[in-house]
Structure formats: structure tokens, C-alpha cells
């Protein structure tokens, strides 16, 4: 699976990148950045652009859009599921049940109108709709914001399973640097015109850049950066337990 942007004219700048395979990519930017535009261009072939966007021939994209209301074409929730499954090979009832189970939503929700759903229900049902057609690429826009820790842990489990077991490519379009730091294989940092920087999750250590981009510094990075002012040899850690042990090894004996 491969998606390639070649000199794509988004604003007055040109964007070039290539993403491939079963990895978790994060396109991180604030609400004025080009992150949503990039997601739209990946999904929608009909947008006129300069340059070229190449996608693998068998690509099938599931897309959870922000605003969440844009994920619904029909008033009743059930009709949105049926619309997607219309003329597919799937047993409709079974497929709907499976997709709701994945996102832990009760099937009673199917009966109501989408604008009566609350924020989290809207998110979860949008994800169920995006997964319905068994896509090989899943785009999630601003999905983790507002989820509680349990829901985030569940989402991580789901995304890792989709990536590792089913070989899917995941594209997070987000401003949630804390979450992206925990899960991303590769990160693109964006402003309102460019890809400013790309690389593995350690690019989120660039505190000045994150500040300039109006993005939150992940808590663990903020702490480690402050700590390194006293011990520049201190390593980077991805989780709090490893961090605590390292601090104890570093200064515990002095107490």
C-alpha cells in the first residue's frame, strides 16, 4: 500500500511525501494547518490540484472526518450503515453488528438520528462506519481529543491490531501530541503551508518548533527536557514507569 504526493500545490507551496506499508503515520498541526487538506486530498480524487498524487491501485480508504457531522449522509444512524453496505458482499445485519462491537457501541444507537448523538457517540459511530467496508487505509481526523484514558487505550489496541494483524495503514490527523507520541511510527509536523519537519516520534522533542506551531509539548518530553538541564546524559523514555525507574537510578542513591 502506498500514497505519494509529488509537488502537490496546496497553497503557494508544494508538498512532497510518500507513505507506505502497515505503519501508523501522524500528520500533526493546529486547527489552521494544512492537516485537514492533506487528509481530504488523500481521500478524494476529484479535488483539482497541481502536481500529482499517486495511490496503490487496490487502495480502499476509511475516513473519519472532522467535523464529525460530515460523516453522515442520512438522518437515521442505521441508514448510514445501510447506505455504505448497499451492493456489497456482506451480510448487512452481521456486518453492522461486528462494526459496532469493535467500537463498543450499543446497537440501540442505530435507531436514533445522528444529530441526537453526543460527541463521543458521534466519534465511535463514525469510526464504525469508516471500518465497515474493510478499508486498507484508515484516516482518523481529530479522533482522540475528548476521549477518556480507557477509550484511548482501547483505540491504541484497535489501531495496533489493524496495523499488525491486518496490515492496514493508519493515518492520524491530529493535534494530540501526547497520543501521537505514544503510538506513531512516523510523524509529519505541519504549519498552514508546509510540512515543517518529519521523522520518527523523537521530532516531538523539538520544543521550540512545537511552540511555534501552537502545539502542546507532550508531558513526558516536557519533564525530560527540564530534567536534562541537570543531567544532560539522561535518556528519553516513552512511558512513566521507565522514567521513574531511571530517575531513581539517577538520583535515588543520593537521598
Amino acid at each position: 500500500m502506498e500514497i505519494e504526493f509529488n509537488d502537490v500545490g496546496i497553497t503557494d507551496e508544494k508538498i512532497t511525501f510518500k507513505i507506505s506499508d502497515n505503519k501508523i503515520y501522524s500528520f500533526i498541526g493546529n486547527s489552521k494547518s494544512i492537516k485537514h487538506l492533506i487528509a481530504s486530498l488523500i481521500y478524494d480524487n476529484s479535488i483539482n490540484i497541481n502536481g500529482s498524487i499517486t495511490k496503490s491501485s487496490k487502495i480502499k480508504i476509511g475516513y473519519v472526518k472532522s467535523p464529525l457531522y460530515d460523516n453522515f449522509n442520512e438522518k437515521r444512524v442505521i441508514d448510514n450503515f445501510k447506505r455504505i453496505l448497499n451492493n456489497t458482499k456482506y451480510n448487512v445485519d452481521k456486518r453492522i453488528e461486528e462494526s459496532l462491537k469493535i467500537v463498543d457501541i450499543n446497537k440501540d444507537m442505530l435507531k436514533i438520528k445522528y444529530d441526537d448523538l453526543n460527541y463521543i457517540e458521534l466519534k465511535k459511530i463514525s469510526l464504525a462506519l469508516a471500518l465497515l467496508n474493510n478499508p486498507n487505509v484508515l484516516i482518523l481526523e481529530d479522533y482522540t481529543e475528548g476521549l477518556n484514558n480507557n477509550d484511548k487505550a482501547e483505540l491504541s489496541r484497535l489501531l495496533r491490531m489493524l496495523k499488525n494483524k491486518y496490515n492496514k495503514m493508519i493515518i492520524l490527523v491530529s493535534k494530540d501530541t501526547d497520543y501521537c507520541y505514544t503510538i506513531s511510527d512516523y510523524i509529519y509536523l505541519l504549519d498552514d503551508k508546509h510540512i515543517v519537519k518529519s521523522g520518527n516520534k523523537l521530532i516531538l522533542k523539538d520544543i521550540n518548533l512545537l511552540k511555534n506551531l501552537n502545539l502542546k509539548i507532550p508531558d513526558i518530553i516536557k519533564f525530560i527536557t527540564e530534567y536534562k538541564k541537570h543531567n544532560s546524559e539522561f535518556n528519553d523514555y516513552n512511558n512513566i514507569l521507565d522514567l521513574i525507574k531511571a530517575i531513581y537510578r539517577d538520583i535515588g542513591y543520593k537521598r
Binding site: 477518556n148 484514558n149 508531558d219 519533564f223 512513566i240 522514567l243 521513574i244 530517575i247 535515588g252
Partner: peptide
């Protein structure tokens, strides 16, 4: 109940447990 703790509070708690 799945809420966890704010990062800075959790860090404080662990550091207290370690006597730091």
C-alpha cells in the same frame, strides 16, 4: 474506573512512593 491521573500528579505519586 479508567480515569487515571494527570501526568504530573502520577509522576509526583511515584516519586513519593520511591521516597524522592
Amino acid at each position: 474506573i479508567g480515569l487515571g491521573l494527570p501526568f504530573i500528579v502520577e509522576l509526583n505519586k511515584y516519586l513519593m512512593d520511591y521516597g524522592l
